[in-house]
Computed example of a mutant assay.
Amino acid sequence: MKPTTRGTLAAVMTGVAAVVGAAAATPAVAAETVPIPVPLNGVEQALGLKAPRIAGELPVPLPGGLEGPRYVEGRMIPDRAVPQVPLSGGLPGADVRAPLPHVLGDGFDHLGLAAPAADLRTLTPGLSLDSPLGAPNPDHLGLPGLKRPQAAVLAPLLKTVPGANLEMGSGA
């Protein structure tokens, strides 16, 4: 087989392997949380005792659809001049399981804390303004009327329901 044929075959096989690997793997953007394991096997082997098992979850924040300014009749500046930006993600989660040795006798019990990642929905603050000029007034030769300027800050929003489970039981 010629070297150019081998190179072409290797490139094709590499491309096929990459496509198959990409199809099998879940993209990180599609995942809601990214697992974070904490490897403590070295501590367990070095010290000769049971180490706790610690893992975490880090949520991936995703921006939502932006609701743009709304034009209102009779106003010179659109409503919600600075719109609120929705973000969705979550609070980080944790899973900790620590062995508790028996004081008398052999064996271990465990103490565990499971706090799964909780959904979190937010809206950033926004701003709504209105100018001191009104709509053109035909009684004043088409000049706009005067009114009081208006400004409003749209309050931020935060929605979540965190939860945790603390347990103690037999087994390591």
Rank of each mutant, 00 (worst) to 15 (best):
V96H: 05
P101F: 03
V82P: 00
R80K: 12
R97S: 15
L129R: 00
G107Q: 13
L133I: 01
P149C: 04
L146A: 06
S128Q: 01
P138N: 04
R75K: 13
A114N: 13
R121T: 14
E73I: 06
P116M: 10
P136C: 00
G93S: 11
I77G: 03
A115V: 14
H102M: 12
A135C: 00
A81G: 05
A118R: 09
G89R: 03
Y71D: 13
A115L: 14
R80M: 08
L104K: 07
S88N: 13
L91I: 14
L146W: 10
I77H: 03
P132R: 04
V96L: 14
L120P: 09
P78T: 06
R70K: 14
M76T: 12
R97D: 14
P116G: 09
A151S: 06
G107Y: 11
A114F: 09
L146R: 02
G142Y: 04
P116H: 08
A98F: 05
P144A: 01
L113K: 04
R80W: 02
L127S: 06
R97V: 11
A115D: 10
L100M: 15
A117F: 10
P149V: 00
G142D: 07
A135E: 08
G142H: 03
R80A: 12
Q84P: 08
V103K: 10
V96P: 01
Q150A: 07
P136L: 01
Y71S: 13
D79V: 06
G89N: 12
A151M: 09
D109F: 12
G90K: 04
R121F: 11
A117D: 11
D109W: 14
S131G: 04
G112R: 12
L133R: 00
Q84V: 11
P138Q: 05
P101S: 09
D106R: 09
P78C: 08
L113P: 11
P125Y: 08
E67W: 07
G145N: 03
L123T: 06
P83R: 02
P138T: 01
Y71T: 14
L91D: 13
L141A: 13
S131H: 03
L141P: 00
L111K: 05
P101G: 09
R75F: 07
A151P: 00
P138H: 03
A81Q: 12
L87M: 15
G68I: 03
P69R: 04
L100R: 09
V85L: 15
